[in-house]
Write a protein that binds this DNA or RNA. Structure first.
Lengths: 235, 235
DNA sequence: TATATTTGTGTTCTTTTTACACAAATATAT
DNA sequence: ATATATTTGTGTAAAAAGAACACAAATATA
């Protein structure tokens, strides 16, 4: 095959995109959005949203379009995850699926949570998942692993939180995702020392009992500076 | 689009795999294999080896098959890199390319280096690359970034070296890839402390001037143990 | 006004990382 | 055979980063 890109062969392979979208709230933890299948195969099972790529659109565009159509979600962070292409992953025909990994912010998550049911989409806690169609459990496993891996060296955490948040939300997110307790003082010391969080003057509006704390905000330029220096965030 | 996987649409998109294969030798540094295009577009330019996926084979199989056909290479390490799918990346039709990242060992690299010319394939130092066809420079940039990123937390270095190697080869590889000097004593201390290298009794056969050193060997079980404990190799 | 809940903060000890120089073994040239 | 150049092998001390740890202040609620 020296004729790469030169032969004109008819290939009967179809390309889809799938999107594993995460949301987070302090109350519910890390959630992922799934849709209920209405037709066979796997009728009635839950699946990761996605669909066919159109010939003239980019892969990213396809993801955003499908998400919009199936779930009404507009994500604010998107990155390519992995491409799944085993021959028999769809029983009907050969499908190559380019999976993406998306995140919505807490406020958006809460808003969506209220009305995604209207479009047969639903949020599930990543620790309490239903049986999934196709090889979607595998996609989800890869995505969760990636999310977990990313937060320890890149502050993807910010994509999950709102623009302003109390420090405890940030800490809880890490503790939840890493599934282990975190020492509040050491964690704060480290994060503040990196300079990626700015402490605001505002206090959080009291959300229950306890002392109200300051709000914090992600310092994006500082973050970019650190990344350009090749610095990892081993939190 | 709730009909994911239910519509039977005709998609005129083609799927290819590409393989960015790296080799290393102390004398030549980090090398990558390219093939010379014999037909338009980009006739005469160099390109990354690859080709169309067949309907019944896995993506990995397609990569290995194409590599074998175009370059005669059998890699010993392969992982998926990224999927490139911009609409106009091939001027003729829509092509989604699943790029892979491969490595051959030094001995294999030297052997191939001698005869890959026979099949219009050639090794290039990653610092002295020719102009590439299509968006292949971008694929290569992503692959090099990945290679560089990987060696600092996973010992992919071993995939590039022979089974037995003098410590200086290992050190030079890291120094070359990271493009910065490495303190020999501290580096050795760290690596040996991790336990991923076993010191052999054999000495390297003298390869020029200087004191002959011991040979070392990758300790795979120790490595797996560390990985299962979630340990990263920040070398 | 007492109680429960959450936030905020500093020090000490341990571990890890960095900086740094000289002697031993070989090959080559004279 | 002797001198010279090249490469390997090794330890210590100072600095930085990480881990362990407890109590007072601010609010909501009973």
């Amino acid at each position: 095959m020296h004729y790469l890109y030169c032969v004109s062969r008819t290939q009967n392979i179809h390309v889809t995109v799938d999107a594993i979208v995460f949301g987070y709230s302090k109350e519910e933890g890390v959630m992922v959005v799934l849709i209920k299948r209405k037709y066979p195969p796997f009728e009635g099972d839950w699946a990761i949203p996605g669909g066919f790529v159109e010939e003239t659109e980019s892969l990213e565009h396809a993801v955003e379009r499908e998400l919009q159509e199936e779930t009404g979600i507009q994500i604010n962070y998107l990155e390519q995850l992995y491409t799944f292409g085993q021959p028999k992953r769809d029983p009907r025909k050969r499908i190559i699926s380019v999976a993406y990994f998306g995140i919505v912010k807490t406020s958006e998550f809460k808003r969506l949570h209220a009305d995604t049911d209207a479009v047969a989409a639903q949020w599930f806690n990543i620790k309490e998942l239903p049986k999934l169609a196709f090889d979607h459990q595998e996609l989800l496993d890869v995505a969760i692993e990636r999310l977990r891996g990313k937060i320890v060296y890149q502050p993807v955490g910010f994509e999950l939180l709102d623009k302003k948040f109390p420090f405890s939300d940030f800490e809880n997110l890490y503790s939840t995702l890493l599934d282990r307790p975190i020492d509040r003082r050491n964690f704060k010391k480290k994060v503040m020392h990196l300079g990626i969080l700015d402490k605001l003057e505002e206090k959080a509006k009291s959300t229950g009992s306890g002392r109200p704390g300051n709000l914090f905000q992600f310092n994006e330029s500082r973050y970019k500076q650190l990344v350009s220096q090749g610095i990892h965030f081993e939190i």
